[in-house]
Amino acid sequence: MSWVKNTFSSSIGRKFAMALSALFLMFFLLQHFAINITSVFSAEVFNDLSHFMGTNPVVQFALQPILIIAVVYHFVMGFVLEAKNKGAREVKYAMNKGQANSTWFSRNMIYSGLVVLAFLALHFYDFWIPEISTKYIDGDMSGLMANGDFRYYEEMVEKFHDPLRTGFYVLAFVLLAMHLLHGFQSAFQSIGARHPKYTPGIKKLGNIFAIAIPAGFIFIALFHHLTSH
């Protein structure tokens, strides 16, 4: 299998793998949003969907590991490529006009990515680690509180009491939008999906996705912050 190793250690292979992990993460983001937005309309629907996602074996033992691999690969390779790219120009220009030929978002993926990574650390601390601990360490798969109601909605709303946390969530989603404004269409280019007929549409769809999904998450965070007191 040396061809696999050779392919994925080449510049093009790595970009391909970055793009594949990105496409999976964007799909994940979409379904995460679809579930979270229900919390604005109905605690019951949100609880039912959360319980299904949290206990379904396909989600837990097939999709979740893929997600974790995709997240870890995407940020580890992001750092590896950034280091290699920095090394490819040892002496910097005294005068460089990047803004003349490319977008700010495209040149600063590492910084928008770093903020999203910091957000993920907080998000895992807030939700994922308590979930894993309750379900797989304490062995409580019921998803219920002491009063017999599902705990998911209560746990989420409680997190958004804190204005600092809510503020950081909002900031991280703004940076995520910037990351996606370049990342969405870039992922298609990296896998070679470019065609005069479809690429303009992909770019438009990418801009809509990059703004609408993070804006939706910001709305959810602010909604619960403002209504949960």
Binding site: L81, K84, A88, T103, S106, R107, M109, S190
Partner: peptide
């Protein structure tokens, strides 16, 4: 050479 990040510059 570095890697392509599709900035389009």
């Amino acid at each position: 050479f570095g890697n392509c990040s599709n900035t389009g510059a």
